[in-house]
């Protein structure tokens, strides 16, 4: 595990990508810090961090795109998987490397609240709890993008898909507000999700009957629900949307709270996707 971690870090910083990404992150961090804190006069650095969450949407997919996709393309996964290391160690080694790369610019930014303190007033506690929350949020997003990288052997696809997924998660809260109007929209969205699920099942099992069966059964169930308890659909929809809004819980830090809930949420997302990554690697050996 340590060997993989070391190799990842070395290869990241021996190329241009590592420095470029770290530099870009620091550039935006500095810009927003200047705008929000130094000029805007806010004493909480978390506000600046929240304004450039959007930078993460690009930074994290680019950071993670190589992770497993490149190993698979150059067949170096063959070395890892035939060495006496477990899949857990491989996944953790890679994940910890990505986390460290994300932590480097964040560690530099950890100096900013001190600068504020030096220049005048700073809400150190809120700022540092914000940085911790930000790190956890990034850790969850990194796990998601690493999982996407394990699904493909094309870095570009991994980056684009990662960006797409993070963008949807980012936009979900505003999408959600569109749908509170009625349960008809919720029904529509659930039907689309059902259709996608049925198509995936159909492709996986190569059985049209199974896919059609799933869709029909789901359709009937949803219609009954819609007819009798339309309120349920809307609530379920809101809850699911809430759970998928990866960047929303961070708002609590912006509001000055050290939110254990948010940290647990991020840790669970990271754990889930690390598990899925391991499963993907394991599954690849079986077909």
């Amino acid at each position: 595990m340590i060997a993989i971690l070391k190799r990842e870090l070395k290869s990241y910083y021996s190329g241009m990508m590592g420095w470029l990404l770290t530099g870009a992150m620091l550039l935006f961090g500095g810009l927003y810090f200047t705008a929000a804190n130094l000029q805007g006069g806010y004493t909480n650095f978390t506000i600046a961090l929240y304004s450039f969450v959007i930078v993460l949407l690009i930074f994290i997919p680019l950071l993670c795109m190589r992770s497993f996709a490149e190993e698979k393309r150059s067949k170096t996964d063959q070395l890892l998987l035939t060495s006496p290391v477990s899949i857990t160690e491989i996944v953790l080694g890679k994940y910890l490397a990505l986390l460290s790369m994300f932590a480097v610019p964040l560690a530099v930014m950890a100096l900013y609240p001190l600068i504020m303190k030096f220049l005048g007033g700073a809400d150190l506690l809120a700022s540092y709890s914000g940085i911790v929350g930000y790190f956890f949020m990034g850790a969850a997003a990194i796990a998601v993008c690493m999982y996407i990288s394990a699904l493909t052997e094309n870095q570009i696809i991994a980056a684009l898909a990662g960006f797409g997924v993070l963008l949807i998660a980012y936009l979900l809260p505003s999408i959600q507000t569109l749908f509170t109007a009625g349960s008809a929209l919720a029904l529509g969205v659930f039907l689309v999700i059902l259709l996608i699920a049925a198509v995936i099942v159909g492709l996986r099992s190569r059985s049209v009957t199974l896919a059609a069966g799933i869709f029909v059964v789901g359709f009937v169930l949803l219609s009954i629900l819609f007819g009798t308890k339309s309120g349920w659909l809307t609530t379920a929809f809101t809850n699911i949307m809430g759970a998928l809004s990866l960047f929303e819980p961070f708002l609590e830090f912006v509001n000055g709270l050290f939110s254990i809930n948010a940290l647990v949420y991020y840790a669970s997302v990271a754990g889930l996707f690390l598990f899925l990554t391991g499963q993907t690697l394991e599954k690849r050996r079986w077909n």
């Binding site: 340590i2 190799r7 070395k10 290869s11 067949k75 170096t76 890892l80 035939t82 060495s83 290391v85």
Partner: peptide
């Protein structure tokens, strides 16, 4: 393997060190 699983951005010495550690 048929296609040696090499990290092309490393030198042979670095690569062998990594494999030994692995």
């Amino acid at each position: 393997p048929e296609q040696p699983p090499l990290y092309v951005d490393m030198t042979p010495l670095e690569y062998l060190n990594f494999v030994a550690e692995l």
